[in-house]
Structures are given as structure tokens and as C-alpha cells.
């Protein structure tokens, strides 16, 4: 769980950085996208880097979801009868359990849509896969505001997921003492905010016409 989660965190960070190319304009953005694809050519075949990423990513997601399901199943067996009076969260990571489980599901749904949208373009008006820029601009067009809203919601879910996830992973892997645990929690929160904001600026700036 922790390992797959961390891998995905790394991807997300890179991905966010990549997305920010959009502010440099269509050419740079597409060049970057193309660059990703043609990385290492002619030595390596087309899209090799991307495929490496994809495989790693798919693997992480599979492992991640699988462990998530295992943990959840175990949790159900370990608490067969629910409390009549719902437990109020008092812990250091409020409602982490629900945040992670439900947040995770939202994220899955999001990723599916997102792939159809910006990778395969199935639900995207711009079919030219060499025009990532156009695709992004198109998908967040003010007229398609529900898409933008959905993206933003997903980002919030992701943010909460990471806020717990990142320190949880550290707690699982490194096992910090109290002082460092508190610090990790602060760092996790910061990273989560940066990532959410970093992603969110793109759709927002498109929707509000800062980028056409």
C-alpha cells in the first residue's frame, strides 16, 4: 500500500509539473507532450518512457487498489457488528478511514474519466493526440463547466487522500517518533495543498480565460 501510494505520489508530482507547461503556450506544452513520447528516440522506440511510466503506474494502481480492498475486507471482518452510536473521530487524522476509502473511489472514477478525456480523447472534442494543449483548453471550456467542477472535486478528494496518505506511508515505512510524526503530518498537508493547487490552476485558468 505505502509503496504503491508513494510511487503514485511521485507520478502525480511530475504530472502536475508537466501540466504547468500549459502556461508557456500551445507550442511548448505540445512540445513537452511530444518530448515525453519521443524521449530517447531513435535509441528507444516511440513512447518508451511514457510506457515505462504507464506500466509502473498501472502496476501501482492495481497493487494499491488490491491492497485497499484487502484491508477493507479485513476491517469488515474485524468489526462485524457496527456501533449503534456512530463513533466521533478524535484522532490525529480526522476521519482518515472514510477519507481514504471514499476518496479512493472518487479518485478511481476520476482517473477513468480523465483517461477517456485527455489520453484517449474519447470524450474530448480535440481528437488530435498531438494537441494536448488544445485538448486541455477544450475540456475545461466554460461551456463544459460540469467537467471542470468534477475535476476540482476529484482534486479535493485527492488532496485529503494525500494529506493522510503521505504521513501514513511515512509512519508505515519509517516509523518516526512523536516529533517527526507531527512534522510529517505538516509536510503531508503542505504537499497535498501544493498538489491540489498546482493541478487546479490549469482548469481554472482555462475556464476563466487566462489561457485560450
Amino acid at each position: 500500500m505505502a509503496v504503491s501510494g508513494v510511487l503514485m505520489v511521485l507520478f502525480i508530482v511530475a504530472h502536475m509539473a508537466g501540466n504547468l507547461h500549459i502556461f508557456e503556450g500551445r507550442e511548448e506544452m505540445n512540445a513537452y507532450a511530444a518530448g515525453l513520447r519521443s524521449f530517447g528516440e531513435p535509441l528507444l522506440p516511440h513512447e518508451s518512457l511514457l510506457w515505462v511510466l504507464r506500466i509502473g503506474l498501472v502496476a501501482s494502481i492495481v497493487v494499491h487498489i488490491w491492497t485497499a480492498l484487502v484491508l477493507t475486507a479485513r476491517a469488515h471482518r474485524a468489526r462485524p457488528v457496527k456501533y449503534a452510536h456512530r463513533h466521533k473521530s478524535r484522532g490525529e487524522s480526522p476521519n482518515a478511514f472514510y477519507v481514504m476509502r471514499w476518496g479512493g473511489i472518487v479518485i478511481v472514477l476520476f482517473v477513468v474519466w480523465h483517461l477517456l478525456d485527455l489520453t484517449w480523447r474519447t470524450v474530448n472534442p480535440v481528437k488530435d493526440i498531438h494537441d494536448a494543449y488544445g485538448a486541455v483548453v477544450a475540456t475545461f471550456d466554460p461551456s463544459r463547466w460540469p467537467v471542470t467542477v468534477f475535476y476540482l472535486l476529484a482534486l479535493v478528494a485527492l488532496g485529503f487522500h494525500l494529506r493522510h496518505g503521505i504521513w501514513s506511508a511515512v509512519q508505515t515505512i519509517a516509523g518516526p517518533d512523536t516529533k517527526w510524526r507531527k512534522r510529517t503530518q505538516a509536510i503531508a498537508l503542505a504537499v497535498a495543498v501544493v498538489i491540489v493547487v498546482g493541478f487546479a490552476v490549469v482548469p481554472l485558468s482555462v475556464t476563466f480565460g487566462l489561457v485560450e
Partner: peptide, 28 residues
């Protein structure tokens, strides 16, 4: 038949002897 720990942190909040999550870090 106990469940797995996902660092939800509710245990420490309920512990009458204020055992902290640091012990879980140590165990890990």
C-alpha cells in the same frame, strides 16, 4: 482476527493511558 492498521489514529485518542502513535512507529 484483528484488522490491519492504516494509521487512522483513533486508538491513541481513546487510550485511557495516553499511549501514543509513536509506539506504532516503533513497531513498524
Amino acid at each position: 482476527g484483528f484488522g490491519g492498521c492504516t494509521n487512522a489514529g483513533e486508538c491513541a485518542a481513546a487510550c485511557p493511558k495516553e499511549i501514543g502513535l509513536d509506539v506504532i512507529g516503533r513497531l513498524n
